[in-house]
């Protein structure tokens, strides 16, 4: 199963289980979404539960909020994460704050699914990784699966979560990442990182599509005799701080990888946390391997993306420090 199929499977199973789950967004109904993540759902659940909306992201999220208040479980899709910005007011000012500002009288749990990330020759409006904006806004959870199993399990958990969740899907890996996924219910709890390789010399922290690059870099590093530990964060908010601390205390070194630009990227927060909590264990500065401080480019996207060679270089530098 690939990630698209896993997302589709999770949506279908949750819609069968819970009649309050609805899917809405641009092109999600009859067409099944431009990436076909909701393919076949309108046929099974009808037009009242799988809704083709007009072209307005603020409308998609604003109406989803109203549905959530009234007791439905909306799963709005934003066609590309790059097009989430027209909905920022609804997400940051409204969705994130509803529970807080009503003193807990109201809540608007929903799962905002959106494909993110580059490497598909999509230029800056089809490639960005805007996760940091949302992690920075209290009241939102932010989840990024790297493989089909986690896509299914995390999406299921997100739909059942009492809080609004931003669910970023690594579109470059949509069909490239394949793996065994059990039939029927799969739940991966939100807030738990996964150690995908145990090692002793350096902790490499990544998520989503960049986990795959980091994995390659770590394998190449192993061939050079470097014993790296690799963490797939899976959930950025809540963050599995215990997993990070435990690993960095053991290795004394950390390399954080993300596609988004470096300045104020989530890597900055992780580096600060490690520095605050593991300072006495550190053998080298915490290093970031990230996209550059530019808009996402078109032609030079592979130069921009923190691909395995750049990650490996950082790993070697940190280990040699």
């Amino acid at each position: 199963m690939n990630i698209i199929q896993a997302v589709n499977d999770a949506l279908r199973l949750e819609m069968r289980r819970d009649p309050s789950v609805v899917v809405l967004g641009e092109d999600v109904g009859k067409f099944g979404g431009v990436f076909r993540a909701s393919q076949g759902l309108q046929e099974e659940f009808g037009k009242e539960r799988v809704i083709d909306t007009p072209l307005a992201e603020s409308g998609v999220i604003g109406t989803a909020l109203g549905m959530a208040l009234y007791g439905l479980k909306p799963v709005p899709e934003i066609q590309f994460a790059d097009f989430i910005f027209p909905a920022m007011d609804q997400i940051l000012s409204e969705v994130a704050k509803y529970r807080y500002r009503s003193g807990g009288q109201y809540a608007c749990p929903m799962v905002i699914r959106t494909p993110y990330g580059g490497g598909i020759r999509g230029g800056h409006y089809h490639s960005q990784s805007p996760e940091a904006h949302f992690i920075h806004t209290a009241g939102l959870k932010v989840v990024v699966p790297a493989n089909p199993h986690d896509a299914k399990g995390l999406l299921t958990a997100a739909i059942r979560d009492p809080d609004p969740v931003l669910f970023f899907e690594p579109k470059r890996m949509y069909r490239a990442a394949k793996g065994e996924v059990p039939e029927g219910e799969v739940v991966v709890p939100i807030g738990k990182a996964r150690v995908t390789r145990e090692g002793t010399q350096v902790t490499v922290i990544a998520w989503g599509a960049m986990w795959h690059e980091a994995d390659q870099a770590v394998k190449e590093g192993a061939a050079l005799g470097i014993d790296a530990e690799l963490l797939d964060l899976r959930s950025l908010q809540p963050l599995d701080i215990d997993a990070i601390e435990e690993s960095v205390r053991k290795t004394g070194r950390a390399v954080v990888v993300h596609e988004a630009p470096r300045t104020c990227g989530f890597g900055a927060e992780i580096a600060a946390l490690i520095q605050e909590r593991c300072f006495l264990h550190l053998e080298a500065p915490v290093t970031r391997v990230t996209g550059f401080d530019t808009p996402f480019p078109y032609t030079l996207e592979n130069e921009y993306l923190p691909r395995a060679p750049r990650i490996l270089r950082a790993i070697r530098e940190v280990v040699a420090f």
Partner: peptide
């Protein structure tokens, strides 16, 4: 800004160290 200047230097060094950093088109 200094960030872009430093990052350009960083990228050039990375390409020099491993040409795979600059993938062919």
């Amino acid at each position: 800004l200094w960030q872009q200047r430093e990052q350009l230097a960083e990228l050039r060094a990375a390409i020099a160290a491993d040409p795979r950093t600059a993938s062919p088109r």
